[in-house]
Design a protein around this nucleic acid. Sequence first.
DNA 1: CGATCTTACTGAACCGGATAAGTAACCCGA
DNA 2: TCGGGTTACTTATCCGGTTCAGTAAGATCG
Lengths: 342, 342
Amino acid sequence: MKRPTIADIARRAGVSKGAVSYALNGQPGVSDATRRRVLAIAEEIGWNPNSAARALSGAAAHAFGLALRRPASTLGLEPFYMELISGVEAELSARSYALMLQVVADPDAEIALYRRWWGERRVDGVLVCDLRLDDPRVKVLEELGLPAVVVGGPEGVGTLANVWSDDAAAVVETVEYLVALGHRRIARVGGMPDLRHTITRVEAWDDVCRRLDLSMAISETTDYSGEQGAHATRRLLSATPRPTAILYDNDVMAIAGLAVAQEMGLTVPGDLSLVAFDDSPLCRLVHPPLTALARDIPAYGSLAARQLLEVVGDGAEQVSRQADTARLTPRGSTARPSGEDT
Amino acid sequence: MKRPTIADIARRAGVSKGAVSYALNGQPGVSDATRRRVLAIAEEIGWNPNSAARALSGAAAHAFGLALRRPASTLGLEPFYMELISGVEAELSARSYALMLQVVADPDAEIALYRRWWGERRVDGVLVCDLRLDDPRVKVLEELGLPAVVVGGPEGVGTLANVWSDDAAAVVETVEYLVALGHRRIARVGGMPDLRHTITRVEAWDDVCRRLDLSMAISETTDYSGEQGAHATRRLLSATPRPTAILYDNDVMAIAGLAVAQEMGLTVPGDLSLVAFDDSPLCRLVHPPLTALARDIPAYGSLAARQLLEVVGDGAEQVSRQADTARLTPRGSTARPSGEDT
DNA sequence: CGATCTTACTGAACCGGATAAGTAACCCGA
DNA sequence: TCGGGTTACTTATCCGGTTCAGTAAGATCG
């Protein structure tokens, strides 16, 4: 029952601990015969290297950290994180890297967690999500020298590496598409206003709406929850005249918006067109299926993981890498506005 | 930049490493004055215990493991895991325990992962989900002596601790409710047939349907995906006569089923009543909102985490603890069947 | 006042690997 | 046949904590 160590292997093989270590790590210094014997014994008694002992001898922790600052409820609902994690995992598990996950309550707790993880040498690097304006985490990570990859940017990441996708282009494409369909009164239900990517989207939205000279272009902000999405939709649809199209910052709010529209007796897409930022299978499951700005989020996570592996590996200087821009995927929730509204 | 060790503290404080260790751990053997001095220095130079060194001296890894065997796509969609994780985290992060997450491809990979985690002393215990019939993981964990808590059961968990909820009672309650509303032809779209909890639900379903002598009681099995849920629904609704109510084994399939019904021109709940097992905010967001068997999944995760802490803590013998039974939460998707169907 | 007990430490071993330095044994060429 | 190089090891040290066995100095007490 006691877990075997290299000393056990050494005793059985009749050689020293050092020789066993060389044999197991493919280092030169032992004969092929001895190496085979050692490996066979290790296999036989089910030996695994004690990661603590390895780490103590200066090796890497072979683990990355990911702190999530969202309440439990939101976490469960939004597919984004889970998809991101599965993408990260795809990259890491192939390399036997572990992912340490922790939910934190606030920015201070997150920073304390980074200090602890790094101090305890539990992780070799971290992934940072939900970049904010003047995000204090960036400076702390730089000071600590803790390798990190920011999922977001490219602005405001300091000297940290990052991966990002061009949300501005996606917003512009969507608005142009809606306008091409004939919409002139459009609205937007956005996420939390202090998040970097929300700011990027708002700016792109304002620019393109001004450029196309739309008669109505309202932006609302929410906390990404279905409740607030529904509430914002209700407010928007109670206005006179009401918008003929709404762009949501995530799929959960778009689905909530769809339910509100149906409940208010509006037909989608006849009376109202809806577009969701981020596409999850949910968008295809509701009726009508939602037009969405699809991003391959697992791929985004994989890219971030690969980048972090690189940063940790060769201590590369800052690298900024761009993921694919969200693809506008028209489905049943968008159409030209009905005549009276045009 | 170099991370400080207790040797650094010892040098500064002018005492030995041993004294510093006693001081930092609240052990007797140092005077209050020295203890305060040591703690102040530790604080000042930003010392954190090296977890590897601690673990090497026989301490716990202060981490639990969770292996997920689902493809990336399903993981992102189903809120269950993320909610479970957030519940687990709520318990663990308060105790500075970390959660190691890894996605695995198949049962063998999962077992190999347990061996590795335990051998490398990376985790103090694991949470096991998706218990199957004759699940090979149980025996391996028992043999390894790796502390574990099965989320499921109570049958088939061997000598492992477990937490479970009474799905059979929930199924019975739901069927009785539908029958009380006047339904006599009901169907069920279930999850993967080799999962323990699916078997439990099927048996309860068969029993109660036989007892109530229903004229139609079909069970379909799926892989929990929205696609298969939609497909099963299409098949069920194409039958003559068709069922007037369907119980789904998760919310994703129920939402897919709702979309299928609407697409086939059936009104919900007029022509068809729907009930979802597991309630996520999604059920409230679609129109009509879905009647659901609500479980507090974060609480379920917390319970499992607390149990694992106990098992690890005092090496308690087998404990089986029951979580709350799913509560039937009627919403807009269930009603008495329209006259012709009764 | 000397024996004993307590307090507050020090020094060293230990955990399980990695690794540098040391050491036999053997081979090769001059 | 001897020096030099290689091979195949062994020995010892290190990583950063924990912990146990000392050990001085001071307090307590008969």
